[in-house]
Computed example of a mutant assay.
Amino acid sequence: MYQPLECFTKSWIFKRNDPKIESEDLENIRLFSEQRAGQIWRDYISDEQIHPDHFTDYDWMKKVSAQAPKPKVQWEKIWDSEQSSLPDELVEHFASWGDDTSVYFCCNNELVFELTWGVFKRTWKAFLFLDNGPVLVGKKKKQAAQFHSNGWVNLLFRES
């Protein structure tokens, strides 16, 4: 179900000194096998498209009904700053999630990470080296977010 993080070609993002990821957090970042990643992708993201670049208006995250009241938030300015916490709007959007909520950081149908919300909040800067459209979803949760390389994140609600 999982494979070592070293199997990920960009595993260096988790081993940098800036941002530094503590060893106990690193141990809780799991990389799914391609098969399991594909299943999570189909269940939570899309059973039609294999990569965020291919999303269409038929995919849930592109629908108007999936947009949060304030649908776009700038993440890059805080990412570039000394501030370590997520942008406030993101924290507010996911306010109902406990630190132990299982989350999936979904880059494409073969690359999905599993971790807890608490670990993501502490390590988000490393994950956003992968900013080409990944979708963050919570297990059995409605709230979601899609990060874009233009420095913006779309705050979303998944359909049932």
Rank of each mutant, 00 (worst) to 15 (best):
M1T: 15
Y2C: 10
Q3P: 02
P4Y: 08
P4R: 10
P4S: 15
L5E: 05
E6V: 15
C7D: 11
C7M: 15
S11I: 14
W12P: 03
I13Y: 02
K15V: 05
R16E: 06
N17L: 07
P19I: 08
P19S: 11
K20S: 12
I21P: 01
E22W: 05
S23H: 11
S23W: 02
E24N: 09
D25Y: 05
D25W: 03
D25T: 00
L26T: 07
N28K: 14
I29E: 01
R30Y: 14
R30I: 14
L31T: 08
L31Y: 06
L31N: 04
R36H: 15
R36Q: 15
R36D: 12
R36C: 11
A37N: 10
A37G: 13
A37P: 01
Q39S: 13
I40Y: 07
W41K: 01
Q49R: 11
I50V: 07
P52M: 04
D53S: 12
D53R: 13
F55M: 15
F55P: 12
T56G: 10
T56P: 05
Y58P: 06
W60G: 01
M61Q: 10
K62N: 09
K63V: 10
V64A: 06
V64P: 10
A66R: 03
A66F: 04
Q67Y: 02
Q67C: 09
Q67D: 03
K70I: 15
K72L: 14
V73T: 14
E76M: 10
I78R: 12
W79F: 14
S81C: 07
S81Q: 11
S81D: 04
E82M: 06
E82T: 11
Q83S: 12
Q83M: 08
S84H: 09
S84G: 09
S84N: 04
S85V: 13
S85Q: 09
L86P: 06
L86S: 01
L86W: 01
D88Q: 07
L90K: 04
L90W: 04
H93M: 08
H93N: 10
H93K: 10
F94K: 09
F94G: 04
F94A: 07
W97E: 12
G98T: 10
G98F: 05
D99Y: 13
D99G: 05
D100P: 08
T101I: 09
T101P: 03
S102N: 10
V103A: 10
C107V: 15
N109S: 14
N109C: 13
N109M: 07
E110P: 00
L111T: 14
V112A: 00
F113D: 00
F113Q: 01
E114C: 15
L115R: 01
W117M: 13
V119R: 00
F120M: 02
F120N: 03
F120R: 01
R122S: 04
K125M: 01
K125S: 04
L128I: 06
F129S: 08
F129A: 14
L130C: 13
D131C: 00
D131R: 02
N132K: 04
N132Y: 11
V137F: 02
V137C: 03
V137L: 09
G138S: 12
K139I: 13
K139Y: 10
K142H: 06
Q143Y: 03
Q143T: 09
A144R: 04
N150Y: 04
G151W: 01
G151C: 01
W152T: 13
W152V: 15
N154E: 04
N154Y: 10
N154R: 14
L156C: 02
